[in-house]
Amino acid sequence: MSPTPSTANIDTIGFFDDLATAMNNDPARYELLGDIDLELAVVMHRDDRDAFRVRLGFHGIQCQTVVEIDEGEEAAAECWLEGDLEDWKAMFADIATNGRAQGPWTLNALTLMGDRIRLEATDPMGWDKFHRFNQTLQDFVDASANILNREVSNASS
C-alpha cells in the first residue's frame, strides 16, 4: 500500500512557492491554456490560530508573486477563495490521490456550491475573472499532486 500524501503544509508560503515554481517550470502546459492576468488571494481558516492568507499574482503564463497577507488584505485582490483549512486539505488530498481534482473537488465545483470554499470579490468583475481563467487556476492547484506525492516519496525513502 502506498503512503498517503500529507497535506500538513498547505497553509504555508513554502507550499504556494512550490506551486508557483511548478507553474513557472511548465510553460508548455500553460501556453496551451493561454495568458492569465489575475491577483487572487487564498484564505484558509484554522481552528488553533489566525487564518493563513496568501496573495498570488498571475501574469502571462507565470505565477510571479506569492505573498503572505494580513487579515482583510484579501479584499485588495481581484477575487479570493476562502474556506476552512480542513476543506482545503480535503481538496488537496483528492488532487494528490487522483493526480487532479475529481468531480466535487474542482475549484469550480467547490465555489459553485460555496458551502466549503467560497469565491468572494468586492467587484463582480473580479468574480468573473475567476471564471475567465478557471482552467489555468485548476491546473495550478492540480500541479500540487506532484509536489505532495514527491514529499511522501522523499519521506519514505
Binding site: 469550480n108 463582480p124 468583475m125 468573473d128 475573472k129 471564471h131 475567465r132 481563467f133 478557471n134 482552467q135 485548476q138
Partner: peptide, 15 residues
C-alpha cells in the same frame, strides 16, 4: 470549463 472562460470574457465586455 472552456466555454465558461470564453463566456466570462463576453460578459466582462458587456458589463
Amino acid at each position: 470549463r472552456l466555454t465558461m472562460q470564453d463566456e466570462a470574457r463576453h460578459v466582462a465586455y458587456g458589463t
